[in-house]
């Protein structure tokens, strides 16, 4: 009894000391929230952000405005959020690059692990290993052998330093133990153009970018990079099936608030995010992209935080071994 009174008193005191924060958290959100996407408008991450923002706006009762702050492999936008006022009116929607930038950029002006409050994971977009339609090997097993035998000939294209396709390529080369000539492009568009045109041989990119081309038969799809086959592309085997062990990569997306955002605000954002992930419209659109929302138990700040830390640890050796840095 006594303890309860003391606790209540302490709580009251705490509330009394921070009346402003309490009041803010209570009627949050009272104005538009800006969601920073650290990539150009129209890209796959932007699309994910806009779908989520639209649904969350409805449940929060305030408009979420998507703002594209592209540049420097997503670190410019992330840095802006890290330095923003932690009041819940600035949030970040970033993908796997949030974890890899910790190693890729040695002079990052913020700390990926300590400068953010994770709100929750959003979705894992699978990737596909695709090739120009005239490439010889019939399946993923033959492709592995072909790459090993022709390592001076095979040209792998990616969408730029630090992009998902760059990461997938690094992982593939480290799994095979064979380096390939890598040609970077500025974004998936021009890389896809050269792949369809047969100027380059291989590319691994998100289903968001590849499904249309695969279905039209303009490129050859060898494997998906997830543990299981995809509903949208049921005929394409997984890397594991093709004998490439321990190869798994998905472009996961997560939402972040700046460090110091009141827990009550983070909780409200998380609740809205969870609700958005169950929105039938969001699920349907995600399915068009060849992906689905993460399960409800993964869309929590705790899981998200632990996951970011594990991803930073996973990619550190891969990137260091490849010897590629973005600064």
């Amino acid at each position: 009894m006594k303890w309860k009174t003391v606790a209540a008193g302490l709580a009251a005191l705490a509330l009394g000391l921070t009346p402003l924060a309490g009041a803010q958290a209570q009627d949050y959100p009272s104005r538009a929230i800006s969601m920073i996407v650290p990539f150009a408008a129209g890209g796959p991450t932007d699309t994910v952000a806009r779908l989520i923002a639209e649904s969350m706006s409805r449940s929060l009762g305030q408009q979420i405005v998507v703002e594209n702050v592209g540049g420097a492999g997503g670190t410019r936008g992330a840095g802006q959020v890290a330095k923003a006022t932690p009041d819940g009116y600035t949030v970040l929607l970033h993908h796997i690059g949030q974890a890899t930038s910790a190693t890729l950029y040695r002079k990052l002006p913020y700390n990926v692990l300590t400068d953010f409050e994770e709100v929750g994971l959003v979705t894992d977009v699978p990737m596909t290993m695709i090739a120009k339609s005239s490439l010889e090997p019939k399946d993923i097993g033959a492709l592995v052998a072909y790459v090993k035998a022709n390592k001076d000939k095979v040209i792998y294209g990616n969408a730029g330093v630090g992009s998902a396709s760059h990461l997938c390529g690094m992982l593939f080369m480290s799994a095979l133990g064979t380096p390939m000539t890598t040609v970077p492009y500025q974004g998936t568009g021009p890389a896809m153009n050269d792949l369809v045109g047969g100027q380059i041989d291989l590319m691994c990119d998100q289903t968001t970018n590849t499904t249309g081309q695969i279905k039209a038969g303009k490129v050859k799809a060898y494997a998906v990079t997830t543990k299981e086959r995809l509903k949208a592309l049921p005929d394409i085997p997984t890397m594991q099936e093709g004998g490439v062990k321990d190869f798994e990569i998905a472009v996961w997306h997560g939402m972040y608030a700046p460090k110091g955002t009141p827990p009550a605000v983070v909780a409200k954002l998380n609740a809205a995010l969870k609700q958005a992930l169950q929105d039938p419209k969001v699920i349907a659109r995600f399915a068009d992209l060849g992906t689905e929302p993460v399960s409800q138990d993964r869309a929590t700040p705790e899981v998200h935080k632990a996951f970011v830390a594990s991803e930073v640890a996973k990619w550190k050796p891969v990137i260091e071994q490849a010897g590629v840095f973005a600064d």
């Binding site: 779908l51 279905k215 303009k218």
Partner: peptide, 10 residues
């Protein structure tokens, strides 16, 4: 894509 149309040659 937001409209649910996957752009591509088809």
């Amino acid at each position: 894509i937001i409209q649910g149309i996957v752009p591509g040659p088809n």
